[in-house]
Nucleic acid binder design. Structure first.
Lengths: 203, 203, 203, 203
DNA sequence: GATGAATGAGTATTCATTCAT
DNA sequence: CATGAATGAATACTCATTCAT
């Protein structure tokens, strides 16, 4: 009578606990003993479910991406035209409701820091970024095919817009005061217009 | 006759050593014993020149900014018109020679991570960003006064362009492969055109 | 109809797994989780078959001795005279084929280390040594009765020869290079001649 | 004004503490926290003077060998002829006073166990054995040159005698009861006679 | 018999910081 | 100024053992 496995659930509990702690203390600052306490588990159990701390970090990244992509796809699919989808993509990341989850944001910035150093994290982080960029690139390509965007390189444009979004994330996490209220999405759309030269302005 | 103080020099040596180590190992990963070894002096001496590790980090930030601003001002001042100065500003950060110093880039990303957590670092980081943004804002304001830029909020535009640059830094540090070759500066200029609607295109 | 008990078989599987791991990692270095993996079963099951880790070690010793004694008795019994039996005893331990099983050798050395510390292991180890020595002592006593050996204390002679063999084991396990090729059995026989002063030389 | 170094002294204190604990608890069983307590130092200081635990073990080996060789050379040099020097060599290791230091003996046996696994320990252990064997080999060679020993291979004879001594160490450490009182040195001399066929018996 | 989850004490090692000299 | 020793708390990770199913 094999016992039913609760691995997936426990792994998520542990990763969520790390996510929460990382937001305020960073990856290095989040001790596994704190993670265990936060998750209401013993420290030994953490290493029963994860080989090492890095593996938990990768699970955090996986969770963040999973949740992000699901919501992002929903937001984008509800928009009709490519131009509106680009606007939806920007609003999703930089609109009013985007700042609702500062925990995820701080966690994401911490992930950037670890991605520089830990090759395994870098690989997964790059894949995560690629997932997000692929979604935007597909929109741009549809807009180009439909001749509503006049843009030579959808790859470059995708990168530029994602860079802007990531940059706003950095500013929001480190120097919130330097961002004029509600300017992020609007400015980014203005920039998208310069980049994509759409027949109808993105707004 | 007291021997001449070498405080300033020693402080810079120590900060430079931390900068070098942070680039590859991050702030937490750079042990002060390693810093001492890298700087060619003893661990005890570090605490003679700095109260604690954070103070060295702040010195690193100061050094980075000092060097950055000096070179940036030189690059911008050599440009004639506001439009050309914006281009110079972008090229300085994202042009071909910008990637020449990966150490400073990785160090900067690490600083972002610490700025989230250590309030003292956050304050200085915000000031550093403000210095950079002030320089760009001044250019934009001149352009607006001279009616070569049609842009309602120079503050928002400044923020947007700096965000884009910071975002490219993040991508360059974590997922170099996702940036099409030489696209960063060009795309950013295209975006600047959308943002500033200049009489003559920025390029 | 209850399924047939596989206790004995499982115990041997587990002990064999520990034996294999001990050879390369030592007793302390062989984690029970590794033992379970090596034996192809789960960690929990190990403690169903053994009270604790030490009990597995004792089983390892029992297995090693059982196999050793069976082969040793066969080797000795095929020799005709006491002198030839002594030679067979030496050859069995130090001859060319003796080094064929480095796993058992390394395991034996590890057992020595544990015998120093764990009293239960020491007791069993002493019994094992006694079994081996009893076999040699019987040969020597027969030789003395038959007046082919001139030796006052068969106990001392037995101990001396077994000590030499154990010593060669130590050298073989730790410093293989210091033993001149094929010298072990020959030298030991020369020493046995000094010890037993046989009418016909042992060789 | 450089502070005078006490490294050598501290290293010896720490190694001595490990030696003492290893004798009863083995290498793995001797926790560095216990070593620190035994030496009356803090745990951190141990790692200031030694990179890791293995390095302490190597220092233990070095200390053991240093002390052993000094006393052994003194014992051997006080003997006049090669035959008497061989006797002195044997007595030094197996005579009545040899068992006076059970701590060093148990420690030596533990070292054997570690030499099997840790290559760095094996190398040093082999060198230590070689030092001891070189001393005996030199005696044998002098005896052969002087035609008082009739022995074809001094290397094999050296190995055989050292093996016997090591074997007695093993028996003494694990199964003291199996060694007839005072038989070790006498039996080994009898064996040496078989091996070296000296003109005058070794005794 | 067998599984897999859970425990909790233990371990080597790291490191910022202090301080006597 | 400078050294090197010393501290002590913290940290990730290991592992024999227990237990509910």
């Amino acid at each position: 009578m094999p016992r039913p496995s609760n691995r997936a659930q426990r792994r998520e509990e542990i990763a969520s606990a790390l996510m929460k702690l990382m937001a305020t203390k960073g990856y290095d600052g989040a001790a596994l003993s704190d993670v265990a306490a936060e998750a209401g588990l013993t420290q030994g159990l953490i290493h029963y479910h994860f080989r090492d701390k890095q593996e938990i970090l990768l699970e955090v990244l996986r969770l963040l991406l999973e949740r992000h992509m699901a919501a992002l796809e929903a937001a984008v699919q509800s928009a009709a035209s490519p131009a509106r989808q680009v606007a939806a993509f920007i609003d999703f990341h930089l609109g009013l409701s985007a700042t609702k989850n500062p925990e995820a944001l701080a966690c994401w910035i911490s992930l950037i820091g670890e991605a520089i150093r830990q090759p395994a994290v870098r690989d997964e982080f790059e894949k995560a970024l690629t997932s997000i960029m692929d979604l935007l690139a597909a929109i741009l390509k549809r807009g180009i095919s439909a001749r509503v965007f006049r843009c030579t390189s959808p790859e470059s444009a995708t990168t530029a817009l994602v860079a802007t979004i990531q940059g706003y994330f950095v500013l929001a996490a480190t120097a919130r005061n330097v961002i004029p209220k509600r300017s992020a999405a609007a400015s980014t759309k203005a920039m998208a217009n310069g980049l994509l030269k759409p027949k109808t302005s993105i707004r």
